[in-house]
Write a protein that binds this DNA or RNA. Sequence first.
DNA 1: TCGGTGATTTCCACTCATTGGAAAACGCGG
DNA 2: CCGCGTTTTCCAATGAGTGGAAATCACCGA
Lengths: 271, 271
Amino acid sequence: MADNTELNKSVSRRVFSLLNAFTLREPALRLVQLSQATGLPVSTVHRMAAELVEIGALERESDGRYRIGLRLWELGSLCPQPNTLREVSLPFMHDLYEATSENVQLAVLDGGEALYIERVWGRSSVPVASRVGGRLPLYATGVGKVLLGYAPADLQETVLRAGLHRHTSHTVVMPGALMRTLRDVRASGIARCVEEMTLGTVSVAAPIFDKNRQVVAALSIVMHSRARSLATTEPALRVAASSISRQLAKNHYQAGDEVQVSLAEKPPRIG
Amino acid sequence: MADNTELNKSVSRRVFSLLNAFTLREPALRLVQLSQATGLPVSTVHRMAAELVEIGALERESDGRYRIGLRLWELGSLCPQPNTLREVSLPFMHDLYEATSENVQLAVLDGGEALYIERVWGRSSVPVASRVGGRLPLYATGVGKVLLGYAPADLQETVLRAGLHRHTSHTVVMPGALMRTLRDVRASGIARCVEEMTLGTVSVAAPIFDKNRQVVAALSIVMHSRARSLATTEPALRVAASSISRQLAKNHYQAGDEVQVSLAEKPPRIG
DNA sequence: TCGGTGATTTCCACTCATTGGAAAACGCGG
DNA sequence: CCGCGTTTTCCAATGAGTGGAAATCACCGA
């Protein structure tokens, strides 16, 4: 818990170590929990949290627990990378969902993990472990294998060296096997992931490129392992992925930076 | 620009006034711009921004401009309110989109404005002014009229007193007329908005209730004014809105708080 | 190539906001 | 009604943050 104790030099760091205490499975924390999680004295946390509530970065429930505030969500939604990708990809993701009725996901590479940016699904789709804003390991997911496959060699090594944790009996935990898979991914432009994260679900994933043919994200379909074979959904996935890439290129989207997409180009109308 | 000068007492406030300088139309700012926008001395901004970049709250481009960082997006995505609404509503929003091919939007009330939480659209949908994470006035949008119509009287007064700004020749700027509309909205459970924000677009909106029949959000369809009449889309909208309400109730969703939705309930699988 | 202008970065002594221990207030369960 | 864990308030000591100023960089036009 109290991991980041030493690095709490500045106020800003303290503030963010406080905010970072919130996670997907622990989105609401009481004062003492926050104190424990950050290693900061209770009175300090109390004062800071109160200030963050005033600012709107945090909200406080009637039961005294703190949560991430709307203003922080709003701020985060200004982040250009996920926003641009989302804006461009969503229509295609819908198409893909319509064609398959399965989960359609979009993820980027961040800090040696797959960070899920967007997800389209319906009532008949299989439940998945990923959430928008959530992270999953690169080596045991479809999107992860794509992102890792196209990543520079040193990242691949880093991930391998960090250790492959077995999630199911199908998880590939042998470095050699994984490296071979990654080469395949690169060669074929498609990654398959069969029950490596959860028994009963399989996924196919394809890379999304920017105008310089750099991989900026990965698109995947996740379905029940008894569903139609992976092979039949692959063509649709490929089409969607390259459509998105093409559209990104049109918008001059590059690597990890800018572009206002439609905001600047389409005439604003309303709802 | 330099509005919040006086209130920059604490470090946390300064940090957030810095972050708040970023907006949808100005998502990338250079050092001096940040300094101007916040009223803080350049050297101070420089030091702070550098620290925020280290933390990941900001990112810095090759051209020296700062942007909101991925970590901040990730943090914001932990905000329970939009997340829960999104998770529950999206499948229904897709259905609605499939049935109409028009923009489907979800917004909540925040700070006297409509804050857009989610949006589903396709290539054939009319372009809209709203963006996820963006804000539009309550009195000139479909979702806004719903949110305002069901809001407590004092908020209605506040909004009226703040002044109704004319966006198009159709914008209702007479307080009396607006109040009458709001009564209608409340009575009928539907709001209509005809070219009040942008010429050429119309919208219908319906409220979404929590288990205590409190309005927590508004759902709307935005389409070209020459499209099929508003009347024909209303039934579909109503159905979707009440389905979402029912689903929220199932998840014990209340007012502005918690509930882990599916995270805790469905078995985690993968992608 | 060489000034010139404006943005960025570095530096450091002053000072005031932040700190956190301690004690008081709260609130729940037994 | 008591006791324990949590939250809130308080305040004197102090070191982190500040910001003016000067150095450096980057870009442009002559």
